[in-house]
Design a binder for these strands. Structure first.
Lengths: 355, 355
DNA sequence: TCTTGTTTTGCAAACGTTTGCAGAGAAAAG
DNA sequence: CTTTTCTCTGCAAACGTTTGCAAAACAAGA
């Protein structure tokens, strides 16, 4: 009759108090087992399902988290969304998804709009100014992924070490002139990868050239193929796999062969082995990052904001078919052995193991 | 102090009634302009934002819709999710996203769990039994995408006509033996495409062979490359672009050239021009479908279920680089001209124009 | 049988809105 | 100056839960 059955209706039907019915679901150990059985049977029969809004109003817990990404159509994000949603679901949380379309204003609006109605927010690859981010982190429960603003709760997919490995590998194959082809300039990951390349090449006397695919699409990268090839580099590291793939398309069109003429390494491992040749890349554990962020939000649900933390998952180099020895037979370089970066006290380093 | 400011606090602060404050936001035309200005200023200053749960409880409107997809990592879905979310956002609705992991039980559970807390549900490519779907449609506000169960509200991306065009095109290029490589067997789209191919080839005396990539991944399809090539077909239509792409990978590994030795046509246009050669495919307006579904849910918000409807958006053939004349020079077939299928009264046919 | 203690249940307030109804003014009409 | 009609605002109930507190029921110890 009157829509979905409520706790009160169930109670009336059974001749008991609404509070008892409520407890049958939320604190069954407080009740006589027979009572909870009774209630459960009646609930089942009537098709009762609890009203989340009423519960949220009463308890102050929203039972949901918000997830904000710049562009869900970018293959980097779906696995992350998936992992977040699965894990949240395990914790009894629903997830609101929103897409900012790479627009900082839209992102800001979405954050304000969602924040009050959720347990907390996960903001991935934020395009907001650092000052604004810190402000937001002060008053909202929000975990950032791939955006490194001090004092905020952030989980980072760090590719620095993997990039060093990649460059070492390239150097050992005899490569001396290397290109970095960047992605979205506002992106933390892009800046991080950019400087990882810079630092390493500087330290080891490799020559580096910078390009940037803007926007970071296959087409933009493909269009860059000619100039990258013409620059005389023998290897390229791309901001991500789609740019690497676009480059490969551009190279193919220009008659430049991979890896014979030029080696290519991507990042994020979003394409797996679907390119030809299969793309060498830096794999990154988005699932672990997503789960960590969800967990952070679900912990101490009371507080009005998250305490700052910097959680790091390191990427790993995976070699496939797009890397090979340099064409011109220059002697392979031998680099001094890599030393592990010391990890400062406040930094947790983890190697992601996916479940 | 005590968390977010509430309507009651604002009211007390201004010395007016909570109802007035409420009306300042929801029915400003009932109030003296100065009053609403006053309230708005105070709200702004205090950083007031309405509590969605309380509102939902009071009005019975959830202000959110649920979106359920089998696998967000499949490139078919992200654009759909994106369009749904954008349009919902325009309508002032948030969207809950859930991923069923292709598991019907999980799907069923998710539907039951989400339904009560949202305005309505969009279920994409449902893997549920038709009987269960009809049952659900009876008691819940739910719009299905790409699942055609009578009496439900469903929006379908129809590729039948486009497949006829594709086959016509192939026949004109001289192809006589054609393969259809299917995807998820429970998928409505797969069945639809399968029989579209069957019907046409039967009617025009073309030879057809059926294969199936299970699961519908790049790898599975790639592994199928050998047998498809060995079957002697000169053209293949794949369930979707990722299978088409996988096939191309398999063909390349087997030394079979596309389109010289075999033509391939994909479906859904999820890969655009990122393959080599660029994949000929059937483009489909997922955005329009998503928007239609969202609109359906936002209309007559009162009702307990949606009235049945069958909204159709037709796909269009887009020819790129993977189709060419058959290798062995058999004479091109001339087919009798296509006739438009009559559309029965209850069927709305639309050609999607994206905004 | 009377305490005392423990387990089980009920009462009622609270969460933050919205909204039907009615009261208070003010303006218009007589 | 009274009545009528509006316009604007306030009161209070309602939405469906949860939960602190207290009452009731029962068991156990004396």
């Amino acid at each position: 009759m009157t829509g979905r059955p409520t706790i009160t209706q169930l109670a009336a039907e059974l001749g008991i108090a609404p509070s008892t019915v409520s407890r049958a679901f939320t604190r069954p150990n407080l009740l006589k087992p027979e009572t909870v059985a009774l209630v459960q049977k009646a609930a089942e029969a009537a098709g009762y399902v609890p009203n989340h809004h009423a519960r949220a109003l009463s308890t102050g817990r929203a039972g949901a988290i918000g997830l904000i990404v710049p562009d869900i159509a970018n293959p980097f994000f779906p696995p992350l969304v998936r992992a977040a949603q699965n894990y949240a679901s395990d914790l009894g949380l629903s997830v609101f998804l929103a897409d900012t379309d790479e627009d900082p204003n839209r992102e800001d609006r979405l954050i304000s709009r969602m924040a009050p109605q959720v347990e907390g927010l996960i903001v991935v690859s934020s395009r907001l100014a650092s000052s604004r981010i810190r402000q937001i982190a002060d008053s909202q429960r929000v975990a950032f992924i791939n955006r490194d603003v001090p004092e905020t709760y952030r989980v980072l997919l760090d590719t620095t070490a993997a990039i060093r490995s990649a460059l070492t590998h390239l150097a050992e194959l005899g490569h001396r002139r290397i290109a970095y082809v960047g992605g979205p300039p506002q992106s933390w990951a892009n800046k991080q990868r950019h400087s990882a390349v810079d630092n390493f090449t500087k330290a080891h006397a490799l020559e580096v050239m910078h390009f940037s695919a803007d926007p970071g699409t296959y087409e933009a990268a493909k269009a860059l193929g000619d100039s990258v090839a013409a620059s005389g580099v023998t290897a390229v590291i791309a901001f991500d796999d789609v740019i690497a793939h676009g480059l490969m398309g551009g190279f193919a069109a220009a008659g430049v062969e991979v890896p014979k003429d030029v080696s290519v390494i991507g990042c994020d491992d979003t394409l797996a082995t679907t390119t030809f040749p299969a793309l060498s890349t830096i794999a990154v554990n988005v699932g672990a990052a997503a789960r960590r962020a969800v967990a952070a939000l679900s912990e101490n649900p009371g507080s009005t904001s998250l305490t700052g933390a910097r959680v790091i998952f390191e990427g790993t180099l995976v070699l496939r078919g797009t890397t090979g020895p340099v064409r011109s037979a220059s002697s392979p370089l031998t680099l001094e052995p890599e030393l592990d970066y010391p990890t400062t006290g406040s930094v947790q380093v983890r190697r992601g193991s996916d479940s």
